[in-house]
Structures are given as structure tokens and as C-alpha cells.
Design a protein around this nucleic acid. Structure first.
Lengths: 137, 137
DNA sequence: TTTAATTCCTCTAGTGACTAGAGCTACAAG
DNA sequence: CTTGTAGCTCTAGTCACTAGAGGAATTAAA
């Protein structure tokens, strides 16, 4: 049961060049090759890459994922490291959400006037208004 | 009333190399120079760069900001373009918020167990669990 | 079995929005 | 007039890919 890189790509939902990139970055070991030098993957790589993809979707950086993978292989002591990584990430996420919600409000304000009315442009105006609020935010 | 790039930097809250970068990218015109070839800015640049900074904080890409600046100079007809830019941006923002809120929930679940208890690591476990959910998300 | 289509290979370069550093020059304060 | 800070240009690095060139291998159909 060996997969070509294209098959693996479909299974795990990562593009082919991305998989090669992850190999290059040391997130997966270089796989076996066919006689013609093409990569051949087993189920282990499916698992590992799914882990990587899932972690990426959760917003972890490749370096953090590398750490997590290392931890998952030696799952004894330095588990708190994993918690630290996740906790730090949670805090950053909460901050991002807050910022985006403020952004959303502002964008709604900006783009709610109907653009068919050929009135003066609220987008430019709103952004221009903020030319004046130099010191805050 | 002319500013050096360092003074301008403090006024608008952008780093010095960032201002030079914005000049290079065509977001601001090349400013006047001192006899010794140093950049000298007036209030117009303060306004324009504040506009750029504000727009960046709202998450607009430099290309979009360039468009918006162009529109703000010719504020007559193609104002709907600005609305389109802002609307597109609003949609992307809403999508991002949703994704991050899902992420937040998952991270909370991941990191809520106390890491002092030397139990098995919930971070790795949780991420590993998701090795199995290959087809969805 | 041959051919054609598709997939794979490596390598280089590009993206966006900066950031860092080298090596040099200008300016302001004492 | 000297010293220290701030400025200059230019190149290269960051992150996580993505795109393309030019060629080889694999697979399916004829």
C-alpha cells in the first residue's frame, strides 16, 4: 500500500509542492523512492501529514509543529512545553479575534451606504477621517 | 515645517524602513531632500502615511491601499470601486473571525487541563485525535 | 508495443510586507 | 571640531508557500 505524492496529496488535502516543501523543512522524513526516483509514501506519512495539516489549520507555525511532533515522539516529560505552545497560541488567537471584530464593525460602517446613490464616497471619507486620529490606535 | 524620516516615523507610528519601503512601493511620492540627500517631509506626507497606516491596520493590502489612494485623488465616478474593495474585505474578515472562533474553542479544549498534573499530554492527544478526521475540514 | 497524456522530478525565482545588516555619509550638540 | 546619533543605499533574509522551466517516469489507450 504505497502512495504516489499525488495520491497522498488528495488523501491529506495538501498540494503536491507543499508536501515536498514540508519534507524539505524537516516536518516529514524523506520517503522511499520508486526505481524511477519518485516518492512512495505509506500510511505513516498520511498520519503525520494530517497532523501537520490540522495543526496548520489551527494556526500553528511550522516551527511549533516541528516541536509538537518532536514532543509526540518523546511523550514523557516535556509535555508542559506543548501546553505552553498551545496556551501562547490561544492568547494570540483571542487577541486576533478582538482586533478583527473591531475591524468588522468599522468595515460595516464604511460599506453600508448604498453605492448606487452617487453621493460622496463613504469609504474614502471614513478612511480619510482617520487621518486625523494620529495618536490613538 | 519639514520633518526628517525619524520624526515622521514617530508622528505616524511607522518604522523608518517601513516608510522607505512604502516610498519604494509607490504609496507615497519620493519626498524632497536636504542638501545632504536626506528625506524631508511635510504635513501632506503625515496625512497620507496616516491614511496608509490606518488602512493597513484595517487589514487592507498595499495594492488595495494604492487603489484607494488613487480613488481619493479622483473622487468623482469610480467610487463604487472603493465600495467593492471594502465589501470584499468585510466578507473576508467575517470568514476569518469565524475560523478563529472555531480555533479558539479547540485551543481552549486543548490547553485547559492543568499541566502540573503529570497526566498524559492533552495537547498531543488532541492534535493526534485529529489525525483521524482526514476527510472533513 | 508503442504512443500519448499525465504525473513526477529538481531547481530557481517570485509573493507580501516587511526586517536586518553592511558600509558609508550627514547632521546637531557640546 | 569632534562625537554620537540618525540617515543613506543596497542586499539578503523572513514565512509558507506558489509558479514555472525543462526534463524523466509512469499509466492508459490504441
Amino acid at each position: 500500500m504505497m502512495f504516489s505524492i499525488g495520491e497522498l496529496s488528495k488523501i491529506v488535502g495538501l498540494k503536491v509542492p507543499t508536501i515536498r516543501y514540508y519534507e524539505q523543512m524537516g516536518l516529514i522524513d524523506p520517503p522511499e523512492r520508486s526505481r524511477g526516483n519518485q516518492r512512495r509514501y505509506s500510511k505513516a506519512e498520511v498520519q503525520r501529514l494530517s497532523f501537520v495539516r490540522h495543526s496548520r489549520e489551527l494556526g500553528f507555525a511550522l516551527g511549533e509543529i516541528r516541536d509538537l511532533l518532536r514532543l509526540s515522539v518523546h511523550p514523557n516529560q516535556p509535555c508542559c512545553d506543548a501546553h505552553v505552545i498551545a496556551q501562547r497560541h490561544l492568547e494570540a488567537t483571542v487577541a486576533k479575534i478582538k482586533k478583527l471584530q473591531r475591524l468588522k464593525k468599522e468595515l460595516e460602517r464604511i460599506s453600508k451606504c448604498d453605492s448606487n446613490a452617487l453621493s460622496s464616497c463613504s469609504v474614502i471619507e471614513t478612511l480619510a477621517d482617520h487621518q486625523l486620529c494620529i495618536s490613538d490606535h
